[in-house]
Amino acid sequence: MATTTLHIVEVDPHDDHLLRAFWDNEQVAQRAERRDPVLRTYDALTATMRDPSPYYGRVLLAAVDGDELIGGVDVSWPLQDNTHLGEIEVNVRPDRWRQGIGRLLHETAIGRLRAQSRTTVIGEACESPDGDGPAVPFATALGYASSHLEHHLVLALPADVEELPPDAAYTVVTWAERCPDEHVAAYVAMRNQMETDVPIGDLELEPVLLDEERVRVSEARTARSYQRLVAAALHDAGGAMVGYSELFLPHGETYAQQDDTLVMPDHRGSRLGLRLKQANLALLHRDHPERKLLHTWTAPGNAAMIRTNERFGFRVVERMHEMQRKI
């Protein structure tokens, strides 16, 4: 198909036809070369675009040839923290790869970020465990360098995991969706500890420190597209909350995502992170038998978490590079 009619348009979030075409293209492009990708649902995309976050700016740009959408780029930028930064994700229909469409979308996105006075841009590029796949070479050709690496792992559910005996020093509590008011101050403190502890390699990122209002906004927005399950540990000597682990269950899907797991520094080495993950897994097995796969991501240098994941039986399915370049 000739590209003489190719042009870039901004996607109106309320244009159901164009927004659906953008999402369809994203699905096809990501699934062409990836195994077990975790992709946003259409409902999650519409919720994000039609009720924008107070903390992020975002625009979707589409490459249209005639009346066909053949590529798209999601462009976003933080509004309150890391105001030097922009994020880009380019997706092109596989039968139109290597025709310059991705480069055109990328350069258009860079123009939008320049208009927002951004100086650094990051994006994810995934490849097989052996290093195969087109995403990393494409980003490298655009001037990006891999600045952080994580392994994407999956666990088939239900999982047969040997449970640890209870630890008399801790009590595990759980909740869904919204942190109970009596725990929210401790939860905010742990989330901020996670922000400072999480490995980021050479990414030019400053920790995003939260307060109760921002946590409550995040909980409400997340609940539109995901169910959140949280297991947290209370230290019985004084009742302080000293660790948490959380799962996200996309609405209408058959998988779950293991997100943060944190134990506060003074309580590490007690296998508390493993107990918290086990508590969440028990909730999954009991209340959500429709979930057949659990995804997680771990930096290859995080030895403690790698041991925990191996004990559960997770297996690596791909490598995820955080790519970064200057604008």
Rank of each mutant, 00 (worst) to 15 (best):
V184W: 09
E212T: 13
F312T: 03
F248Y: 12
R221I: 04
T140D: 08
P37K: 01
D132M: 12
E89D: 11
R96Y: 14
D51I: 04
C126S: 15
P265S: 07
P199I: 02
H148F: 08
A232Q: 05
A29W: 00
T140F: 07
K277M: 10
T119N: 07
G313F: 13
E253P: 01
T4G: 12
L153W: 13
P180M: 08
L247K: 04
Q80M: 14
L274A: 13
D287P: 00
V316A: 13
V217Y: 09
L155V: 01
T4C: 11
E150S: 10
H288Q: 02
S218T: 15
R96A: 12
D16K: 08
V230Q: 00
M323H: 04
F138H: 07
T308I: 15
H285C: 01
A44F: 06
F248W: 12
L19E: 01
D181K: 13
G143W: 00
T298P: 07
W77Q: 00
A185H: 15
V38L: 03
H14I: 00
R118C: 03
L142K: 04
V64M: 05
T108Y: 14
W175T: 02
G123S: 04
E26C: 15
Q257Y: 06
L6G: 09
M190Y: 04
A145Q: 12
V90C: 05
L155R: 00
L69Y: 07
G301Y: 00
D81H: 14
G269A: 08
D287W: 01
E206W: 11
A156E: 13
E253G: 00
A223Y: 01
V184M: 10
V154Q: 09
L262G: 06
D81Q: 15
M190T: 09
E310N: 10
R178V: 10
D160K: 12
R20G: 08
A135R: 02
G86V: 06
L276N: 05
G273C: 09
P289F: 00
A47M: 06
P13D: 03
L19K: 01
H106D: 10
L60A: 06
A185D: 15
G143S: 02
R34N: 12
L274F: 14
P166M: 09
D81M: 10
I70K: 03
A237Q: 15
Y187C: 11
R34D: 14
R214P: 06
G102T: 04
V184I: 15
L104N: 07
D74E: 07
F314T: 00
E213G: 11
K326W: 13
G143L: 00
T3R: 15
A139S: 12
R214C: 06
M190F: 07
G123A: 03
A304S: 11
V73C: 05
L6E: 10
V242K: 04
V172S: 03
